[in-house]
């Protein structure tokens, strides 16, 4: 599969995850979000940027439970809970947010 943004083609896997995470940029993220029917707000970007930082540090996309806990630690308990994250990413913060962040599917995502 492939995604077209600003005249450039980005390769994705069969589930729409970006194949080369170095190709990611904000416009690609917006296009990926559109495919998920998500309007990106500041709160969405906060989670996306958190995920990208996490990936840079640990070289994996975190499992949802781990993401929730880590967000709570960094951004406070009102954001570190399932409800908040599922409100932002209704089909799962792991899968949907990771896709928009240009990361591979989370390891341990079952």
């Amino acid at each position: 599969m492939a995604l077209e943004v600003n005249g450039k083609t980005y390769e994705t896997d069969e589930e729409g995850f970006l194949l080369n995470l170095n190709e990611w940029n904000e416009d690609v993220a917006k296009a990926l979000a559109q495919g998920e029917n998500i309007d990106m707000t500041e709160n969405h970007w906060e989670v996306i940027n958190f995920l990208r930082d996490y990936y840079n540090e640990y070289q994996i996309a975190p499992a949802v439970r781990v993401l929730t806990k880590a967000i709570g630690k960094k951004l406070g308990p009102e954001k570190g809970n399932s409800k908040y994250l599922y409100d932002l990413f209704p089909f799962g913060p792991g899968k949907q947010a990771c896709k928009i962040a240009g990361l591979p599917k989370p390891t341990g995502c079952i």
């Binding site: 540090e57 640990y58 070289q59």
Partner: peptide, 14 residues
């Protein structure tokens, strides 16, 4: 190759 050594540091979060 993927440098997965950093991932061992993520185990604590798991």
């Amino acid at each position: 190759m993927k440098n997965f050594s950093s991932t061992y540091r993520a185990l604590e979060g798991y």
